[in-house]
């Protein structure tokens, strides 16, 4: 049998000091004669002590705030939420994990790309010699509540452009690739990187987990490409392995075929 006072939650309020003095006295009187409520109160004490013994987590997993601050800085500078001043945050060069460095570079690249793209504000005309050519245009994601159709259309268009770039990267012969061709691939990848990140965040916001996952893989491939600053066969092969390991082309095909 459960005591009414226990079942009503009054004991919890007593434990958390949420009762007025009069009700508090009443509960104390009750406790002196009710072993069930005393046991229930003891349980709350055990819960408090057990939770107090857990580690106090107040920093990111790396123990380093630099990537957090870089990401925050980049978010505040994002164009979809309006133009804002970028906070002058010193970027630490030392990092405990390689991914922190990549994230920092990604954020920096996004900012640089965005600045350049906003300044130019016109589509890039692809070189006729490149089979992977795709126009690079900075997009502003729809933000209205009923923007599903617009978002779908823009994402599909972005996917089509990106797929051409990924296909090009996957089929290149690293040994025969000219430095100028690689520079152009890098330019395309860098141009798509910022948009990909924005679409990935938008997909996450909309709960489109599968799409967000593919965008994340695409973002990684574009990031690696944009960071490989000169024609280097081993780096290009690494990017190609990444595309294969992540099964990126197939995933992009599935998403575009089955819909978002």
């Amino acid at each position: 049998m459960v005591c009414d006072r226990h079942a009503s939650g009054e004991l919890d309020l007593y434990f958390y000091d949420e009762l007025n003095p009069s009700d508090r006295r009443t509960v104390e009187e009750h406790l002196s004669g009710c072993s069930e409520c005393r046991a229930a109160l003891d349980e709350l004490g055990v819960i408090r002590d057990a939770l107090a013994s857990r580690p106090d987590v107040s920093t990111p997993a790396s123990g380093d705030w630099s990537s957090f601050m870089t990401r925050l800085n980049a978010s505040l500078a994002r164009p979809t939420q309006g133009v804002m001043g970028v906070i002058g945050m010193p970027m630490k060069t030392a990092s405990r994990r390689p991914s922190v460095g990549y994230l920092a570079m990604a954020a920096l690249l996004s900012l640089v790309t965005l600045s350049v793209a906003l300044a130019l504000r016109k589509p890039h005309v692809p070189a006729a010699s490149s089979p992977t050519a795709a126009p690079v245009v900075v997009r502003h994601l729809p933000s209205a509540p009923n923007d599903g159709t617009a978002f779908r259309a823009m994402t599909e268009e972005h996917f089509e452009r990106s797929k051409l770039v990924v296909l090009g990267l996957a089929t290149k012969n690293p040994e025969e690739l000219k430095a100028s061709d690689w520079a152009y691939e890098r330019e395309l990848a860098t141009g798509l990187l910022n948009d990909t990140r924005l679409y990935r965040l938008a997909a996450e916001d909309r709960g489109l987990d599968r799409l967000a996952g593919v965008m994340r893989d695409l973002e990684l491939v574009l990031l690696q490409t944009s960071l490989t600053d000169e024609k280097d066969p081993s780096s290009i092969q690494q990017i190609q392995r990444l595309i294969r390991r992540r099964d990126l082309i197939e995933k992009m095909n599935v998403v575009t075929t089955t819909g978002l």
Partner: peptide, 16 residues
């Protein structure tokens, strides 16, 4: 208050 009570109830059960 009801949310707190429900949460504490679940934690008691987990503790037991």
């Amino acid at each position: 208050k009801r949310q707190l009570h429900a949460a504490v109830h679940r934690l008691r059960q987990a503790l037991r």
